[in-house]
């Protein structure tokens, strides 16, 4: 609730003192950095990029309109199409596996296991590490000559092959292993908080009714945790679109183009290829994909509340 909503001088009654305009002035001044960030950087920057995505900017931004040319070139570029395909594979797998692993771990930890604190610490610590560190660790572990593959071969299983980072059809899964390692802990943490928020009496009621544990989770608990799942979905989704650092560190987009992702395409076009227009068009497409993820969520979360 607004404690001291300052009203504009315009709608002030005749008895209002003229100083009304300056009411709450300290708050307005204090909020200037926020206003600047919101309007200039977030709104201004986004609009600027969208506008310039319709220009033929090359080395420098120029307002030379080319209509949808940049987008046409973008969608005709093999590199972009591969990027999209890669991100789709990574995204779908990451979404499903993160939710499944995150929830499973949370549910297991919620069973009053011993050493819960230690386990939670182990599951979550990768989240404190950067994607660069994550990528480099897994690059090393997945090293075909000295890493996991050679260890298993050394144990006598000579035919064992696990070299995703050098196999163009498997490389996205190599990234996925690292991405899941870094990010599932967060989702587990959120899910665990959600599970802990569920009334103990629900479990008692389910036991009295003789409903088994697994069935209780599927029929009762998961439907109750809908908001937690939605939040997780949004977090995972917006993280996937941003996927960049991990790829840079772990595979640099290779082998060939096989682990290219949209964010990388943008960065190369803007800072490497002197092809700003392409970069703007590609980043605008990234924005569109985020909007596609966010709008249904926003309608679900906020649209419903206002009506109800």
């Amino acid at each position: 609730m607004a404690l001291s909503e300052a009203t504009d001088a315009g709608q002030a009654g005749p008895t209002k003192k003229p100083t009304r305009l300056f009411k709450n002035m300290a708050s307005k001044i204090a909020a200037l950095p926020m206003v600047f960030t919101a309007l200039v950087i977030f709104v201004g920057g986004t609009v600027w990029t969208i506008v310039y995505s319709f220009t033929g900017s090359g080395l420098l931004p120029r307002l030379k309109w080319v209509g949808l040319d940049q987008y046409e070139r973008l969608w005709n570029s093999r590199k972009w199409l591969v990027s999209i395909e890669n991100l789709a594979i990574y995204g779908i797998c990451s979404l499903i596996l993160t939710l499944v692993i995150g929830f499973t771990l949370a549910a297991l930890l919620d069973r009053k296991v011993r050493g819960e604190g230690a386990l939670r610490t182990i599951f979550l610590y990768p989240f404190a590490l950067s994607f660069i560190v994550t990528g480099l660790i897994w690059q090393w572990i997945l090293n075909p000559d000295l890493g996991l593959q050679s260890v298993v071969r050394g144990m006598g299983w000579e035919a064992f092959t696990f070299d995703p980072l050098n196999n163009s059809s498997l490389v996205m899964f190599g990234l996925l292993i690292a991405g899941l390692w870094q990010g599932t802990g967060l989702i587990m943490c959120i899910m665990l908080a959600g599970l802990r928020g569920i009334d103990e009496d629900i479990w008692k009621a389910a036991r009295v009714d003789g409903i088994g544990t697994v069935k209780t989770y599927i029929r009762v608990i998961i439907p109750m945790m809908r908001p937690v799942f939605v939040t997780s979905l949004v977090l995972i989704g917006s993280g996937i679109v941003k996927l960049y650092d991990l790829v840079v560190a772990q595979t640099s987009g290779g082998p060939g183009l096989s682990s290219q992702v949209p964010a990388m395409y943008v960065m190369t076009a803007m800072f490497g290829g002197q092809n700003l227009g392409q970069g703007f068009a590609a980043s605008t497409m990234m924005l569109v994909s985020v909007v596609i993820i966010l709008v249904p969520w926003a309608i679900l979360e906020f649209g419903g509340k206002k009506r109800g």
Partner: peptide, 19 residues
């Protein structure tokens, strides 16, 4: 004075304290 009134006046000890 913790809420701003929309209209009308408040006097305390004869002094207009509405604002």
């Amino acid at each position: 004075g913790l809420l701003e009134v929309t209209d009308g006046q408040i006097f305390i000890k004869g002094k207009n304290v509405t604002w």
